[in-house]
Design a protein around this nucleic acid. Structure first.
Lengths: 163, 163
DNA sequence: AATTTATGTCAATGAGGCTGACATATCTTC
DNA sequence: GAAGATATGTCAGCCTCATTGACATAAATT
């Protein structure tokens, strides 16, 4: 059941009062996080647009540069997407000469992924404006706050699922 | 240990060294931010899926609840999307009884947006797991760090464009 | 009356996800 | 050595959410 989740009986009264922070809900941080992320990804988006790439390419280039030799399976696990989704993006990056595949030395079924020199340069170029933005956001912050921010971001992640 | 083979004709050299933090680039925070946001939006995503809604509906419901009486133009400005993109999402929310439109009292061309009671409840239900996640990430943090995190997130936003 | 503004809508497009099905090469196991 | 499992690739189709362009309507402004 529950075909219609929303009530449709007559005209529900519109509420005119803003939804404010309560003891349980902190809307302020929720919004801050939304806006911060929106603007954070806008810098690389603008650069990528010129090459006809998108956010998906950025993520792949970033992680392959951070973990050269990672396999396709590793990448799928990190990005939490399907291999079909990855395929198109990865192929474009390989065809454009930013990433190379090398058969695994132990297990030759594996395709180990490495950045090329220009792949490394691209990753750095994309990270640069983001880093400047981060540095600007940290201006005047104490070492304690800087560490606190890292701890906070880290704590926002899902806990490991036992399996 | 992976070994670099010699340069091959026409094939760019794959780089085997990981890209590390430098004085200019802080990859650690870039990644922390990526993972934090990915998991942050996963909670509401799971709830919305049941009603056939998506992230776009979430954003609209959230801001209309925070700013009852905002116009369509206000919403477009906040979300930085086009009115064609907003139209479908907004229509679904109105049809489902989560949001109501009221002609502006001064300017009757305007459509002022208000949440209904169930729209308010939906916004709260979506914010709840996010708030719990934030609270968990703040566990044991000093008041200084909490304020520092807000300052950081706030500093990540684009500065106002002069116009 | 003419123009501008706020909004709505139709049509087409694209990026980036998804599922299902199947192919290939390689490794592991019996 | 045959059979099965694993890592990857690929084809085909579908979905959501964004885009642009063009045009429609109603109301405000000049």
């Amino acid at each position: 059941m529950s075909r219609q989740t929303g009530p449709k009986a007559g005209k529900p009264e519109p509420l005119a009062t803003p939804m404010e922070d309560t003891d349980i809900i902190d809307f302020e941080i929720i919004e801050l996080f939304f806006f911060a992320y929106r603007d954070f990804v806008s810098d690389p988006d603008a650069i990528l647009e010129k090459s006809g790439f998108g956010r998906a390419h950025h993520r792949v280039v970033h992680f392959v540069n951070r973990n050269p030799g990672m396999t396709v399976a590793d990448l799928l696990e990190t990005l939490k997407i399907t291999k079909q989704s990855l395929a198109r993006v990865l192929k474009q990056l390989i065809d454009s000469g930013y990433i190379r595949q090398v058969a695994g030395p132990e297990d030759r079924r594996q395709r180990k992924l490495y950045p090329t020199k220009s792949g490394r340069e691209l990753a750095l170029a994309l990270a640069e404006p983001q880093s400047r933005r981060i540095e600007r956001a940290f201006e005047g912050a104490s070492a304690e706050v800087r560490e606190g921010v890292k701890g906070f971001l880290s704590g926002m992640r899902d806990r490991q699922k036992a399996d």
